[in-house]
């Protein structure tokens, strides 16, 4: 399995080849299921001018928010970017460009990008500022806009378990955008809580088949909770 063994030993190896001005797709919803150590490695490498595609942009000091501190992100493609004062500051000062994209459209852009589909029509956003400059077409009496898919130079993904072949399973709602980002990276890097021996993960339970995955690394995770809510 040498050629199919996706395991790497260090985070430096995991993001080997990441350079300035690249596009990085990141999994996660809020702070749930974010590739926290790969984000830290991007910070350590000090690459600049990145376009980052992710549903959200972390919070001050955690998640993708840490990449704002050294101004590593040039453009953010996201559906919701609240909860982050430094983000607001850079946005208002013009240091940071933002492309707000409806959440379902963002997910489909990644799915389509990974599936070799360059664009698709959706009713989402028709008649709104999101439709500005986009082709409109009518199907069965309803108007749709043309949305282009997204691929990235790198995809950074947080899984639960992976095997040596890069087959990945996700845990609970930490799945979210992760399997979609995984399909759409030229180089897809998955960090997991545990790497298991081949055969431990059953073929029928794999969420992301290893064909999409280039590198797997095991890490430890803080898993910060954004809104801790418990029963009264």
């Amino acid at each position: 399995m040498a050629g199919l063994d996706k395991r790497v030993a260090t985070y430096e190896q995991a993001l080997e080849g990441l350079t300035d001005n690249m596009t990085v797709l990141a999994g996660g919803f809020g702070l749930c299921g974010i590739p926290e150590n790969l984000i830290s490695e991007i910070r350590r490498r000090g690459v600049k001018g990145l376009t980052v595609v992710s549903n959200n942009c972390g919070v001050d000091g955690f998640g993708l928010g840490v990449l704002l501190e050294d101004r590593q992100i040039r453009k953010m493609v996201a559906s919701y970017v609240g909860e982050n004062a430094e983000f607001e500051r850079q946005l208002l000062s013009g240091e940071l460009e933002v492309e707000l994209t409806p959440q379902g459209t963002l997910a489909e852009k990644m799915r389509a990008g990974g599936a070799g589909i360059p664009a698709f029509y959706t009713a989402t956003g028709y008649g709104t500022p999101v439709a500005d400059g986009k082709e409109v077409r009518e199907f069965n009496g309803r108007k749709y806009i043309l949305e282009e898919s997204i691929t990235g130079d790198f995809a950074i993904v947080k899984g639960w378990k992976a095997d040596h072949y890069g087959n990945v399973v996700y845990r609970n709602t930490a799945q979210n955008f992760n399997p979609l980002a995984a399909t759409a990276g030229k180089i897809t890097v998955v960090e997991v809580e545990e790497i298991v021996e081949p055969g431990v993960l059953l073929p029928s339970e794999i969420h992301t088949p290893g064909i999409y995955v280039d590198r797997v690394i095991v890490g430890t995770f803080e898993k910060r909770i954004e809104k801790r809510t418990v029963k009264a």
Binding site: F29, L31, W160, T173, R224, R228, T229, V230
Partner: peptide, 21 residues
């Protein structure tokens, strides 16, 4: 489902409002 207890709280289980569920 409902909100968790302190004992069943799980960072990997949230709703769209980012609350633990």
């Amino acid at each position: 489902g409902e909100f968790p207890t302190e004992g069943t709280l799980d960072a990997d289980m949230i709703n769209a409002g980012k609350q633990t569920v």
